[in-house]
Amino acid sequence: MISLHHSPRLSANQCGSVVTQTIQAPLPLVWSVVRQFDEPQAYKKFIKNCGLSSGDGGAGSIRELTVVSGLPAERSTERLDRLDDESHVMVVSIIGGDHKLVNYRSTTTLHEGGGGARDTVVMESYVVDIPADSCEEDTCLFAETIIRCNLKSLAKLAEKMADHHL
């Protein structure tokens, strides 16, 4: 799965990596949260609100995000490039906004964990241009900090939901 979905080719001015989170909740439950392109704020705490500007939440849809204050941005425009419910793959590209995440593309995949049907492993990889006024290390640190926070929030939400379903 890593070589298939999480090994993007990087150009000289890009960086990228993979972040992994194990969640103690069944894969179908975790996927039901992740796949909601029109409601990322359910677990992504840096998003104030979201609205679809195009599409129905499936591949090709475009969402307009308002980011919480305190971050170096106010808005972001994102496109859902791929949504595969069978393979549990979601690919999103940032196509606009007032931030430095130029040519940002993330791939999120879900897998059953080693702990059986109760564990889910979420992998999120990304590739992004390195801004002219920054360096690879700082760009990667910024992107990975946001992804880690999002995945920890997803874990907390999904595990709480799983506990209520038992």
Results as ranks from 00 to 15, higher is better:
Val102Gly: 04
Ser87Gly: 05
Gly113Asp: 12
His99Ser: 04
Leu101Gly: 02
Met90Arg: 00
Ala59Ser: 13
Ser54Gln: 15
Ile94Arg: 08
Leu80Trp: 02
Ser87Arg: 15
Ala73Glu: 13
Leu71Met: 08
Met123Lys: 13
Asp81Ala: 02
Ala59Asp: 13
Leu65Met: 15
Lys100Asp: 06
Val67Ala: 13
Val122Asp: 13
Ile47Leu: 12
Gly55Ser: 10
Arg82Asn: 10
His88Val: 02
Asp85Ser: 04
Ile95Asp: 02
Ser76Trp: 04
Phe46Ala: 08
Gly96Ser: 11
Gly116Lys: 12
Lys100Thr: 07
Asp56Ala: 14
His88Met: 09
Glu64Pro: 00
Gly116Pro: 11
Gly116Ile: 06
Gly57Thr: 12
Ser76Phe: 02
Ser87Ala: 15
Ser54Ala: 09
Val102Thr: 15
Ser93Cys: 01
Arg75Lys: 14
Gly60Trp: 12
Val67Gly: 01
Pro72Cys: 01
Ala59Ile: 07
Gly96Ala: 10
Ile94His: 10
Arg82Val: 15
Gly97Asn: 11
Asp119Glu: 15
Tyr104Trp: 14
Thr108Asn: 04
Thr107Ala: 01
Glu78Ala: 00
Ser106Asp: 05
Thr109Glu: 05
Asp98Ile: 03
Arg63Leu: 07
Ala73Ile: 04
Met123Tyr: 07
Thr109Ser: 11
Glu112Ile: 02
Arg75Glu: 12
Gly97Ile: 00
Gly55Ala: 10
Glu78Ser: 00
Gly114Lys: 06
Ala73Asn: 05
Thr107Val: 12
Gly116Tyr: 14
Arg79Thr: 02
Leu101Phe: 13
Lys48Gly: 07
Glu86Pro: 00
Ser69Pro: 01
Glu74Tyr: 06
Arg105Asp: 00
Ser61Val: 06
Asn103Gly: 10
Ala73Met: 15
Arg79Lys: 13
Ala73His: 08
Val121Gln: 11
Arg75Leu: 03
Arg105Trp: 01
Arg63Asn: 06
Ile62His: 11
Gly97Lys: 03
His111Gln: 07
Val68Cys: 12
Lys100Ser: 09
Ile62Cys: 13
Ser69Asn: 09
Asp85His: 05
Glu78Gln: 04
Asn49Glu: 15
Arg118Asn: 06
Thr77Tyr: 09
Thr120Lys: 03
His111Met: 03
Arg63Trp: 12
Asp56Tyr: 12
